[in-house]
Write a protein that binds this DNA or RNA. Structure first.
Lengths: 221, 221
DNA sequence: ATATCTTATAACTTAATTATGACAATATTA
DNA sequence: TAATATTGTCATAATTAAGTTATAAGATAT
């Protein structure tokens, strides 16, 4: 069943949206500010977020920016303003639709349905999957054996580069240049260490990273 | 460098896409309507087109139809509608991908890259194959009789050099210089030993390495 | 055929490369 | 700012490969 997270500091707005969601057969979850919203999305189980722009603690745009760091969940913004600035800004940070206050609950429901179907049918994430490993490049999420695995930024970068170049022998130099940048002149063992960390994070999938002695590594899946 | 032609009548959208292209290292060109788009594609130098459907003068679909008469350039459509009709119609006339507004620029960039790599920027393996031996230089993998064989770095280097110079008589001196380096003054038997190891690894394909008594070796395949 | 030269092989020693754990420096987040 | 997580460095261990030596096997020429 669809779960909608309603984020607004005004309880009146939350109640209205909640009521209409119930009529449509969606279950709901509420949050009073951006921080609460972030932790509820992180906790999982949420399918779509309806978020107000103006809120105490953490405003809507900032909250979306945070959420987009770890999730590609559909987000619809509620904005009191109609200016182009908001629209552009919103799309830039990755919202899926916006609606200006005052809005008719009917219209909001229509938008929810539209975004939902788009998320399900149209827009597909770029995903790599092989064996027990699944890498969602769009959401920046990695699953090992069905379980979600948290990787550090460098681990992500390293894994992403290797997966994108799977089956290709990658020299240590190439990896350092591409993942760390051409201006990195660090320790010889830095790459080893991060390969070690990545392998540890990947658990049973660590074997996909093959050591090519005297050369570098290759990702095989 | 990649040049992206952005076709949209809304300057706001053009600006956002332009900005993200810059972040990705793509240079951009703009057009306000279909007619302008056609002439800019005709002028050349464009690698990919991002085009809105709804535009004055000449709409996106009509413009694509025109462009397809003289060019197979990758085209991604921006559509405000989600209806199936648009999708089908779009692919029919030869677009490469479509994305519905509102869209996240991040996703657009992913699509651009996907279309780019599909258009032929993908990595092709450099492979040598003869009889029962197959050498994948890109993956750095050797197959003998369909089975994968693990070679040590020196074995790889030696094999790669011999395969690259197949059919040519290679003196011991030449081999030592090229594979070991001009500064190597080692034992006389070092080369023998590695030829032995390589032959052992190659199994039934060991006969491809022919001994030229008093001279060196030749790779025959 | 056999003396002589060249190459092949096995066993061994040395060298090089990668993996790892501990820690310090740095950046992030609450 | 304090707490936390991430990144980079270093010393050292583990692993794998390379090089050397002695000897055997095989070719070549006389």
């Amino acid at each position: 069943m669809y779960k909608v997270l309603i984020v607004d500091d005004e309880v009146g707005i939350r109640e209205v949206v909640k009521k209409y969601c119930a009529l449509e057969g969606f279950s709901t979850l509420e949050a009073e500010d951006g921080l609460e919203a972030i932790s509820k999305v992180k906790a999982g189980g949420v399918d779509i977020v309806i978020m107000d722009v103006m809120m105490p603690e953490l405003d809507g745009f900032s909250a979306v920016r945070e959420i987009r760091k770890f999730s590609s969940i559909p987000i619809i913004m509620l904005s009191a303003r109609t200016e182009t600035y908001d629209r552009i800004n919103g799309f830039e940070i990755g919202i899926d639709d916006y609606i200006t206050k005052p809005f008719s609950p009917k219209e909001l429901m229509l938008r929810i349905r539209a975004v939902m179907s788009r998320a399900g049918n149209g827009v597909k994430s770029e995903i790599f999957e092989s064996g027990k490993l699944k890498v969602d490049f769009t959401a920046r999420i990695v699953y090992v054996d069905g379980e979600r695995v948290d990787l550090s930024p460098k681990e992500y970068d390293l894994l992403f580069f290797m997966v994108k170049n799977k089956g290709i022998a990658l020299s240590r130099e190439k990896l350092l240049n591409e993942v760390w940048g051409y201006d990195f002149y660090g320790d010889d063992r830095t790459l080893d260490t991060h390969i070690k960390l990545l392998r540890k994070s990947l658990g049973v999938c660590s074997e996909y990273i093959v050591t090519l002695r005297g050369m570098g590594y290759r990702f095989e899946a």
